[in-house]
């Protein structure tokens, strides 16, 4: 058994709510998770489940109020800005919206060299690295001098991936990186994620609302609901034969692209909901 790269233990995140003496909003209520080197852990949930908050907490962008995040044995949940910056070489991010994750007024090269400049890479080296990165994500090297608006959503997401790879990190937090993309583009970008993982051994925390996307890419899958992880296990098992009632509902809610099987799934879903209602009713009686 290899040692875990990232261990999240009983993590709590609370956002202050505006107003005098209002109770803060608890986005995460004690979440535990671990990621091994080279592993992809999928994090599924609906909007408001806290999945994005968990990703942001790992990146140091959310206020951690309890529990711990340990990266390679060191606690990183409560680091100050300056100490946090040193981690940029190890933990990187790819965001959901390819339109706002690149500064519209900087060229691709300027965006890609940004992380390199922080680590004092000389500019000819940085330039060479940029071309290498663009090549790695399947973009021509002349893309470097262009502005983000000249690229489609899928191309921008490739650029965002290149930026995340610039410092050869060990973990990339991917926050819904394909949900804004078209179907055919989505499949290709997912394959790129897979190829890069196989080539570099980077680990992913892959956040998505789409069970099918997570299943395609993740070794293990965690399901979040109302700020808690309700199910965590092997990817295939969680996404095809889940145990928790919520995961079951989630699985059956996604329509299958086949009219005949979808009719079947619809029937299964209403049966499941009826059955779960029954159980809830019995639980409330006792």
């Amino acid at each position: 058994m290899t040692e875990s790269l990232l261990v999240i233990d009983n993590l709590e995140v609370e956002y202050p709510v505006k107003g005098f003496r209002r109770k803060p909003f608890r986005a995460l209520k004690g979440v535990s998770l671990d990621i091994k080197p080279g592993e992809c852990v999928g994090l599924v949930g609906e909007s408001g489940s806290g999945k994005t908050t968990l990703g942001r907490a790992v990146l140091g962008l959310a206020p951690v109020t309890g529990g711990s995040i340990t990266f390679k044995g060191a606690e990183i949940g409560h680091l100050k800005r300056r100490a946090r910056r040193a981690l940029s070489e190890e933990i990187q991010v790819v965001f959901q919206d390819p339109y706002s994750s690149l500064n519209p007024s900087l060229t691709i090269e300027q965006s890609l060299t940004e992380p390199l400049r922080v680590t004092k890479v000389s500019s000819p080296d940085a330039s060479r690295r940029v071309r290498m990165l663009l090549d790695q994500v399947g973009l021509p090297s002349n893309a470097a001098d262009r502005l983000p608006r000249e690229f489609s959503g899928g191309q921008r997401q490739r650029i965002a991936i290149a930026r995340a790879l610039a410092l050869s990190p060990q973990l990339i937090v991917c926050d819904e990186p394909v949900s804004a993309l078209d179907l055919s583009t989505q499949a290709r970008v997912l394959d790129l994620f897979k190829d890069i993982q196989e080539a570099t051994g980077v680990a992913y925390l892959f956040v998505s609302h789409d069970l099918a996307v997570v299943r395609h890419l993740s070794h293990r899958v965690a399901v979040m609901y109302h700020g808690e992880i309700v199910e965590y296990g092997e990817g295939d098992k969680v996404t095809s034969d889940p145990e928790h009632p919520y995961t079951q509902r989630l699985l059956l809610a996604a329509p299958v692209p086949d009219p005949i099987r979808q009719e079947q799934r619809r029937a299964d879903r209403s049966r499941l909901i009826e059955a779960q209602k029954e159980i809830d009713l019995q639980a409330s009686v006792h």
């Binding site: 091994k36 080197p37 196989e198 070794h219 299958v256």
Partner: peptide, 26 residues
């Protein structure tokens, strides 16, 4: 391009672990 009903990724195999080990920790 539809992913529904596609094969799952499967479990992390140890060759991937070895890969990271040889890559070393910066």
């Amino acid at each position: 391009a539809i992913l529904e009903d596609g094969a799952a990724r499967g479990q992390l195999d140890h060759s991937a672990d070895r890969h990271t080990a040889t890559q070393g920790v910066t």
